[in-house]
Amino acid sequence: MKFTLSTVARSLAAHLSGNFPGVTFFEDPNQQGSTVPCMFLQQRYSNLKLQTAGRWLRTIGLDLTYLEDYNRPDMQRLYQEVAETLDLVMETFPYTDGADTGALRTYEREWRIDLDALHYKFEIRVIVHLPEPYNPMRTMDYKEDVTDGG
Rank of each mutant, 00 (worst) to 15 (best):
T106N: 01
D87F: 00
H129Y: 10
Q51P: 09
H15L: 11
G33V: 04
Q80G: 02
M137W: 06
S11Y: 05
T59E: 01
Y107E: 10
G61R: 13
L130I: 06
W56S: 10
G61Q: 09
D116G: 09
I127C: 09
L57Y: 07
E108S: 12
Y66L: 13
R125E: 13
I113H: 00
E144V: 06
Y142K: 02
Q32G: 11
D145M: 11
P29I: 11
T106E: 01
D148G: 03
D63M: 14
D100I: 08
Y142I: 14
T85R: 12
G149K: 07
A99E: 04
G150A: 11
T52N: 12
V89K: 02
R58S: 15
E68C: 08
E81C: 00
I113S: 00
N135L: 06
M90Y: 00
H129S: 12
T4C: 13
G22N: 08
P73Q: 00
L86G: 11
D87N: 15
M137F: 13
E91P: 09
S11E: 14
S17I: 03
F25K: 12
Y66R: 11
D114W: 07
Y134V: 11
R112M: 09
V8Y: 15
D100Y: 09
V128R: 02
D116L: 07
E132P: 11
Q31T: 13
T92V: 08
E91N: 01
L50H: 12
Q51L: 02
A53W: 05
A53E: 09
K143I: 08
D116T: 08
L41G: 14
R10L: 04
R125L: 09
W56M: 07
R72P: 08
L16V: 04
L115I: 04
T101S: 15
C38D: 09
Q42E: 03
M75K: 11
Y134M: 09
L48I: 07
G98W: 04
G61V: 00
Y142T: 15
L41F: 03
D28Y: 14
P37R: 05
E123N: 13
H15W: 15
M39C: 13
L41W: 04
